[in-house]
C-alpha cells in the first residue's frame, strides 16, 4: 500500500468527519418528510447486509467456514444474543469447520 495509505486515510477520515460535523455545525431543522426519514433509517441495515453477503462466504476462511459462521450467527442473532456472543460463536464454528475434511 505504501504512501497511498496516507491518501486513503485522509480522504476517508475527511469524508466521515464532514458528514458528521457540517450538519452538527449548521443545521437546526428536523427532517419532517417521513419517507425520507425512513430511507435514512433503512440505509444502515441495508448496508450491513450487503457488506455481509456475499463477503462472509468468500473470505479467506473458505466457503464451508463461511456458511457455518453465517448459520450460527443467524440462529444466535434470531435469539437476540449479544454482539459479542454472536461473534465469538461464529468465529469458533468457522474455525472448527476449517478443520473439516471437505
Amino acid at each position: 500500500m505504501g504512501n497511498k495509505f496516507w491518501i486513503y486515510l485522509l480522504v476517508m477520515a475527511l469524508t466521515t468527519y464532514l458528514i458528521r460535523s457540517v450538519p452538527f455545525c449548521l443545521f437546526r431543522q428536523k427532517i419532517r418528510n417521513k419517507k425520507l426519514q425512513n430511507f435514512f433509517d433503512y440505509i444502515p441495515y441495508a448496508v450491513l447486509t450487503s457488506m455481509t453477503v456475499p463477503a462472509i462466504f468468500t473470505s479467506e476462511a473458505g466457503i464451508v467456514s463461511g456458511i457455518a459462521a453465517f448459520a450460527v450467527a443467524c440462529i444466535l442473532a434470531y435469539k437476540n444474543k449479544s454482539l459479542l456472543i454472536v461473534a465469538v460463536f461464529s468465529v469458533l464454528v468457522s474455525l472448527v469447520a476449517g478443520f473439516l475434511p471437505l
Partner: peptide, 15 residues
C-alpha cells in the same frame, strides 16, 4: 482468517 469472520457475525447480530 476465522477471527476476521467475527465482524460479519456482529453485523448479522445487528440486522
Amino acid at each position: 482468517t476465522s477471527l476476521s469472520i467475527g465482524i460479519y457475525g456482529m453485523f448479522i447480530a445487528i440486522v
